[in-house]
Amino acid sequence: MSLFFQLVVSGLASGAIYAALAIALVLIFRATSIVNFGQGEMATFSAYCTWQMINWGVPVWLSLLICLAASFIVGIIVFRSFIQPLIGAPIEAMVVVTLGLFVLFQAVTMWIWGADQRAFPSIFPDGGIAIGGVQVRISALGTLLALAIAALSIGLVFRFTRLGLSMRASAYDRTKSMLVGIKVQRMLMLGWGLAAVIGMIAAVLIAPRLLLSPTMMTPILFYGLAAATLGGWDSPFGAVVGGLLVGVAESLGGSYLPMVGAELRIVVPIALTLIILLVKPVGLFGSYKVTKL
C-alpha cells in the first residue's frame, strides 16, 4: 500500500507541473479561443534565458524575476505580431500558426544554446521528509506549493479585481465588452503575457528533474493539453484538477498496468482524453456553448 501512496505523491508532483502548463493553455484559450501549441517551447526558451543569467553569475532569484518579466513581454510580443493579425481566422489556421511558434521557438533555442542537456539548479533544497512511510521530497512539496500560489493568485485576480473582471468579460464576449468600454485588445494581450509567465514557472519547476534541453517541454505540453481537455477548456480550476488527475493517472498507470509500462506512459493521458471526449466532451468543469446561426 505504501507503494501506492508513494506513486500518488510523485504523480501529484508531476501533475502540479502539468496543471501549471494547463492553466497557461486555458488562459490563452479563454482569451482568444486558440490552443497554443507553442506554449511549452516558449517556456523552454524562458527557462534557457534564466539558465543563461544564472550562468553569468546573477543570483538565482534575481534572474528568475527578470526572466519572468521578460517572458511576460515575449508573450505580448508574440500575441501582437503573430496572433492579433489573425484573430477570427478558422481553427485550423490558428493551430498552424501556434504549431509554427512551436517549431520556431524550439529551433531558436537549439540555435542559441545547442542540443546538449544542461543541469538546471533547483530552487528548493534537497532532501525529503517521511510521512507515514511515504517519502516526500521537498522539491515535490515546493512544486505543489508554487502551483497553489500561482493558481490562487490568478483565481483571486480574476474574481475580485476590476482587471480580472474585464479580462473575464473580454473572454466571454469580445464585441459586447468593447461596447461597455473595456479595452479588449489590451486584455487579450495581458492574457497572453500572463500565460507566458505561468508557462515559464512550469518550465523552471520541471527543469531540475528533466535537465534543460530544447525539447524538454514537448511531452509536458501534451500532458498539459490532456489536463486542459480533462478539466474543461474554459475553466482554470478544471485545469488544476485535470493536471493533478493526469499526473496521478500517469504515475499509477505506468507502474500498475504491465502493458503500459514506463515506455508507454504517454498513452495514459491519450486514453483519459479519449474517455472524457466520449463521456463529457466539454471536460469535467467546462460549460456547454450554444452556437447561433
Binding site: 489573425l86 498552424v96 500558426v97 517549431v103 520556431l104 524550439q106 529551433a107 531558436v108 540555435w111
Partner: peptide, 21 residues
C-alpha cells in the same frame, strides 16, 4: 546550421498563414 531548417519551417508556417493562406 542544424537548427536553420527548423527556423525556416517555423517562419514558413507562420508566414504562409499571414501572407497568402
Amino acid at each position: 546550421n542544424l537548427a536553420l531548417g527548423n527556423v525556416i519551417y517555423g517562419l514558413a508556417l507562420i508566414g504562409v498563414m499571414m501572407i497568402s493562406g
